[in-house]
Amino acid sequence: MMMILGVPAPLLFGQVLLGLINGAFYALLSLGLAVIFGMLNIINFAHGALFMMGAFCSWMLLNYVGIGYFPALFLAPLIIGIFGLVLEKTIISRLYKLDHLYGLLLTFGMALVIEGLFRNAYGSSGMPYRIPDMLQGATNLGFMYMPNYRGWVVLVAVIVCLATWAIIEKTPLGAKLRAATENAPMVQAFGVNVPRLITFTYAGGVALAAFAGVLAAPILSVNPNMGTSLITTVFAVVVIGGMGSIMGSVVTGFGLGVIEGLTKVFWPEASATVVFLVMVIVLLTRPRGLFGKSA
């Protein structure tokens, strides 16, 4: 068996792949957080809860309506996105004139409500979601066996991240969005409907979280707590990357996932804390984050 640094190669690559998958979730979630923060100046604490709702939505579609994985990949983000749209219109939009901290507190309250309701309805033990038949099994890559579903998650996540980047950086809509992030009143003066832009930005960020939730459903068990355990790590990722650039969030997300995976191989005890340790190092050396603009 091939060995790398005293570790069997398949184990190493396996953990790197797992790391990439976690990284995919980090990237999708921190991307959504960054986009929402840019427009709304709010850190969406409910992001983890909405990620969880995405997973539950796909589970419900399968078990109550009989709609399978692939349609759910589009439907769940759409449904949760509409939910986010309603949230923004009815509740969050009342806060824009207040200190940023109130947004954090409000969305924290929303997360508690959403998770509490799901815990009441479904308990906290978690429900399995079967990997779709098409993506069952594994492929021999020569140096390791890759479970097809895991490869699929990484591939799709990368595509969605790139698509989001392209929309924001390369389309007229994205140009308006970036302009409104810089100076909303000015953009409004040019006749752009900024409040609507804000609403759809929030819905879009939420849809990204829900999309990640659907991807996660077959890997993590679908349970009401799946979001919160992830969101604190995602916050650390956001601090490390800084929220200035889209590509920055994506690269940081995947990178930290891989670092976490490698830590599982070489120093298993630290795997839960390594992201936070990286955050400490970044804070000491480059407080504004790797890709952040100056404070």
Partner: peptide, 9 residues
């Protein structure tokens, strides 16, 4: 938890 969340909001 739900009640706490509502109070928060």
């Amino acid at each position: 938890t739900v009640i706490q969340g509502v109070i928060f909001m």
